[in-house]
């Protein structure tokens, strides 16, 4: 399978504190990768740096996406190349409806205008799959949404924007069993309909049940402490992260 994302010796800092130290990993097209680790191990930092968050500064290394060096590209350009991140804490945007926002974003990502009618059809289909009431389309983005509704809205964006690689940053945290099921259904649909790749940052396995994991990376103190296949996930669940801390 051809390479989609290649991270080489990536180090990054926030306010002069280095949080990632020489991380390397490669994701092939359509693959599903899992990133696990303690709180504060650098998982979310890794996701944000791949997406181009201005909060972090890349101090060393490179990020190559689809053969292009994107290390110094702004987040919007990365999005247009087909990168996406589902936020752990989605931001509320008062006065802008879900539908208005997504139509705008879709036009930016694809570079094409889309007719309102075609867009609405697409939006409602995705909402139905995620068991979201149609009325959410006309609500202000994330404003007054519960934690679960915000996560669903992120997956809705994933389905509409159909990126080549989606990073899911703890999309399952704080969700009840039913909500995890619905969100998983959305993620499955993304894989099925677009064949896109995934980096799943998570603490637990429920969200992974419906997915075929190709590779697992364990992060510890900003470094890759261990790597393996799907079996590594279970090992972590059974024995915790401690065993990997020494392998650095």
């Amino acid at each position: 399978m051809s390479e989609l994302l290649k991270i080489e010796g990536l180090s990054a800092a926030a306010e002069d504190v280095e949080l990632l130290h020489g991380v390397s990993l490669t994701v092939g097209e359509g693959e599903t990768h899992v990133v696990m680790g303690h709180n504060g191990a650098g998982k979310s930092t890794l996701g944000s740096v791949i997406m181009g968050s201005p909060e972090y500064k890349v101090t060393d290394g490179k990020i190559i996406f689809g053969g292009e060096d994107i290390t110094s590209l702004s987040a919007d350009k990365r999005a247009r190349l087909g990168l996406f991140i589902s936020f752990q804490n989605p931001i509320e945007i008062p006065g802008i409806t879900v539908a208005e926002f997504l139509r705008n974003a879709l036009e930016q990502v694809t570079g094409k205008r889309i007719k309102l009618w075609d867009f609405k059809k697409k939006l409602y289909a995705a909402m139905e799959l995620l068991e979201m009431d149609k009325s959410y389309a006309d609500r202000d983005l994330n404003v007054g949404f519960s934690g679960g509704e915000k996560k669903k809205a992120e997956i809705l964006q994933l389905l509409i924007l159909a990126p080549k690689l989606a990073i899911l940053d703890e999309t399952d945290s704080g969700l009840d069993v039913d909500a995890v099921k619905t969100v998983s259904k959305g993620i499955e649909e993304y894989k099925r309909s677009t064949g896109g790749a995934l980096i799943v940052i998570t603490h637990n396995t429920r969200i992974l049940e419906a997915l075929t994991v190709d590779k697992t990376h364990i992060l510890s103190s900003g470094r890759i402490a261990a790597e393996g296949g799907a079996e590594l996930v279970n090992e972590v669940i059974e024995n915790g992260f401690e065993q990997f801390a020494g392998r650095e």
């Binding site: 181009g52 987040a75 919007d76 989605p90 008062p94 802008i96 926002f101 705008n104 930016q108 924007l161």
Partner: peptide, 29 residues
């Protein structure tokens, strides 16, 4: 906030478009 701008930019909006969208939303009602 920078985080809000980043959120919108991660969806393909340029920084200028992101700011304009936030302002438009703020002025909406």
């Amino acid at each position: 906030s920078d985080e809000t701008i980043f959120y919108l930019m991660s969806r393909g909006l340029s920084e200028e478009q992101a700011r304009a969208m936030i302002v438009r939303g703020f002025a909406d009602n």
